[in-house]
């Protein structure tokens, strides 16, 4: 598996992996954003007179995405958001306020902060499932 070695050698430093992760998460989030807006277009359906808010068809439309695998993927999506957001802040610090001297420390500090926020989001998303509403 020589390409594994080439790949691992080329991406020897954290910044190189950060670059790759930033691009991949960025493309994934752009795809998600387009899908996200498309999914929400059903909100434009006007409210029928006499029909309560609870019975609007959009609620039924999103229901499958609020449990099971989709709920888990919503949590996983947050890891892409966090990686891209925190690494983006690191890029901003390097590019705009001379952070290149401590960019590697920043990388690991943000990885730690990212894990904290990710686990916090896990608690928010799953507390109702685990402990009841």
């Amino acid at each position: 598996m020589s390409w594994v070695r080439t790949y691992a050698t080329y991406h020897r430093f954290s910044g190189s992996w950060a670059f790759l992760g930033h691009r991949l998460s960025g493309l994934a989030l752009t795809g998600y954003l387009l899908m996200h807006i498309w999914t929400l277009k059903g909100l434009q359906e006007s409210i029928q007179p006499g029909v309560p808010l609870e019975e609007h068809p959009w609620t039924e439309f999103v229901r499958p995405y609020t449990s099971g695998l989709w709920l888990f993927l919503e949590w996983v999506l947050f890891s892409a958001v966090l990686f891209h957001a925190l690494n983006g802040i690191r890029i901003g610090i390097v590019d705009l306020v001379g952070g290149s001297k401590y960019q590697k420390h920043l990388f690991w500090a943000f990885i730690a902060l990212g894990w904290l926020l990710f686990l916090g989001m896990g608690w928010l998303i799953y507390r109702h499932v685990l402990f009841g509403a």
Binding site: L53, E54, H56
Partner: peptide, 12 residues
Amino acid sequence: NPDRGHTFKSVY
């Protein structure tokens, strides 16, 4: 909360 952004009523 689980309804927020996930039911029409909460969004409305």
